[in-house]
Design a protein around this nucleic acid. Structure first.
Length: 561
RNA sequence: GCGCCCGUAGCUCAGCUGGAUAGAGCAACGGCCUUCUAAGCCGUGGGUCGUAGGUUCGAGUCCUACCGGGCGCGCCA
């Protein structure tokens, strides 16, 4: 409907250009906004204000000229000039309620578009190393990354979800030593416990399973324990598989699945690290200093050069990172989004600098980063810092077990990524209107209940037929609902383009609120069949949008509460 | 000290590429169930948008400086 207004304005602008009122050598793109205040109609444009200068006319006078040239349209009921020169559009009832038919006919496709035109996009997220259970921060990353993936899919992109992890570095050695120590019966405070060993209780589980000769199957590997506490390599392989499986189980419980698991070790075994070093060296961006090899990242905006090969001959983490991203580029992804915690912010400049130094035509701002800020967990107003299993942090599993998958996903996706998030366990657990998850789900359940009642009265719900029976809609609350529903596709396009999943949760909250208001003020199943059918159709449309929106954040839409 | 992020109602947060008197929920107070689920609805109060300048027809939104909080500043990932 906004498109209709935009087209009308474009026609008017063209007419004014033909008349010489507006310069013909410039392009004017009308900006059409949803109004905040209903007194301003359904849509408003500031085009007269924006072009007043170019036209050399006062905005209000220009607005009048524009209105004069607007083509006639059944969709528009009234047009007004307001304030300093805004043009307000009041849409006709019929055109406002037409969205209900569109939604019922489109079903789960309502809100989807083909902006992406099938382009392949890769999203890397979570990417936790297999050294322990996933923590809340990983949970936020999982919620945001997966929601972004679903949003992009809804916008016509082909999305690949990728999980990158290090299965071979110093941290993995440390993990193996920790498991070995537990297998030998040592505890973290004993003599001989590895320095910086992992102290969490989960290490005990790994050690027990190893000694018991268990076989573990993760999404990307399967390993049978050798049960020999002296074989560090065997322990390492088993511990990695064990913790990978545990992470997979947590992610599955969270409703998140990956298409690709990428191992840092494969970059070494496949010669990709060496190749990257050679390219950087050949391009003349490396130098030796103090026994190490450095990369001139300052050539590409970094504030100091970085070591890429340590004095001990090993590489710093950032070199495989560059090799990894070169690999992503060669896989053909022109759009790559990395979702990470903001504590890794410093790698952004470094990785991009390394990629520039390769001189392979990778664009400067590639890849994209979505960085989320820290998560603070509270209970009874107090910060929760520990979990029994992990020791030093709150795990994702703790939250899922305590507040459920739906609430956890919703809360972790509900805030802008660049602000810190306080996860209030009491609020997430509460089954009252304080809790937005239940509030939204309740709206859906109420609609289901109305439909059940209708069915119990012996009325068949024929969606297609109901979609044509909208004449009975006329109430103010109904128009408000229809207008809100009409905004959904734009929301989906915007949230995806801006990489801002939190808009979805806010929209659903608003939509549910408007529905509850309507539901309480007016009865759906009234005697007059014409009105009843129209209201049922509206309910079907609201239900559809609630389902579509909830599915984007991976939250269920229960039929009963 | 340098870099990035944040600062909007008592609390938790929205505010779409600058737009018309700044919004929502919770908390507080007062109402609404013989009617499709009260896990709901209606009403009332509550603000120098951290501070000071600047840009312009117009700034919560853009620029600069400062104040306050978080994160990062490793030959750790």
């Amino acid at each position: 409907m906004k498109d209709t207004v935009t087209q009308l304005l474009e026609a008017a602008i063209a007419a004014l250009q033909a008349d010489g009122v507006l310069p013909a050598d410039q392009t004017f793109t009308p900006n059409v906004d949803n109004t905040r205040d209903k007194a301003h109609g359904d849509f408003a444009t500031n085009i007269a204000l924006a072009t007043a200068k170019a036209a050399g006319k006062p905005p209000r006078q220009l607005a009048e000229a524009l209105i004069d040239k607007l083509p006639a349209s059944k969709a528009v009921q009234k047009v007004e000039i307001a304030g300093p020169g805004f043009i307000n559009f009041f849409m006709s009832d019929a055109s406002s309620f037409d969205i209900v038919r569109t939604i019922i006919e489109s079903g789960e496709n309502y809100g989807r578009n083909d902006n992406g035109q099938g382009e392949s996009v890769q999203i890397e997220f979570v990417s936790a190393n297999p050294t322990g259970p996933l923590h809340v921060g990983h949970g936020r990353g999982a919620a945001i990354g997966d929601c972004l993936a679903r949003l992009l899919q809804a916008n016509g992109y082909k999305v690949s979800r990728e999980f990158y992890y290090n299965d071979a570095g110093a941290q993995i050695d440390n993990l193996a030593l920790s498991v070995q120590a537990r297998a030998q019966g040592k505890t973290p405070d004993d003599e001989g416990w590895p320095a910086d060993g992992y102290r969490g209780d989960y290490i005990i589980d790994v050690a027990k399973a190893y000694l018991a000769g268990e076989t573990v199957t993760a999404d990307d590997r399967e390993v049978t324990a050798k049960a020999d506490a002296g074989d560090l390599d065997a322990i390492k392989a088993f511990a990695v598989a064990y913790l990978r499986r545990e992470q997979d189980l947590d992610l599955k419980a969270f409703g998140v699945e990956f298409d690709v698991y990428f191992l840092e070790s494969s970059l070494y075994s496949g010669g990709k690290v060496e190749e990257t070093v050679r390219m950087l060296t050949d391009n003349g961006y490396t130098y030796e200093k103090e026994g190490a090899t450095w990369l001139r990242t300052t050539e590409f905006g970094d504030d100091k050069d970085r070591v890429m090969r340590k004095t001990d001959g090993g590489y710093t983490y950032f070199l495989p990172d560059v090799a990894y991203h070169l690999d992503k580029w060669r896989r053909g992804y022109t759009t790559v989004i990395n979702e990470q915690g903001a504590d890794h912010h410093s790698t952004v400049t470094r990785v991009r600098a390394g990629l520039q130094a390769l001189k392979t035509g990778i664009p400067q701002g590639w890849p994209e980063y979505v960085l989320h800020q820290m998560v603070l967990v509270t209970r009874s107003g107090e910060e929760v810092k520990l979990s029994k299993r992990a020791g030093s942090y709150v795990t994702l599993r703790d939250l899922i077990d305590e507040v459920g998958r739906d609430a956890t996903r919703f809360f972790l996706a509900a805030r802008r990524v660049d602000s810190q998030l306080t996860f209030d366990i009491d609020l997430a657990r509460s089954q009252t209107n304080e809790n937005p998850v239940y509030y939204i789900q309740y709206a859906h359940a109420r609609i289901c209940s109305v439909l059940r009642k209708l069915g119990a009265e012996g009325v068949q719900v024929d969606r297609q037929a109901l979609a044509e029976r909208l004449d009975g809609l006329a109430l103010e609350e109904e128009r408000d609902l229809a207008n809100r529903l009409a905004q959904y596709p734009e929301l989906i396009a915007n949230a995806a383009a801006q990489r801002e999943p939190h808009h979805v949760t806010h929209y659903l909250r608003d939509l549910a609120g408007q529905f509850h208001t309507y539901y309480n003020a007016h009865k759906v199943l009234v005697e007059d069949e014409s009105i009843r059918d129209a209201r049922v159709a509206l309910c079907l449309a609201v239900q559809q949008v609630l389902v579509n929106g909830l599915s984007l954040i991976g939250v269920g839409a229960p039929e009963e509460m």
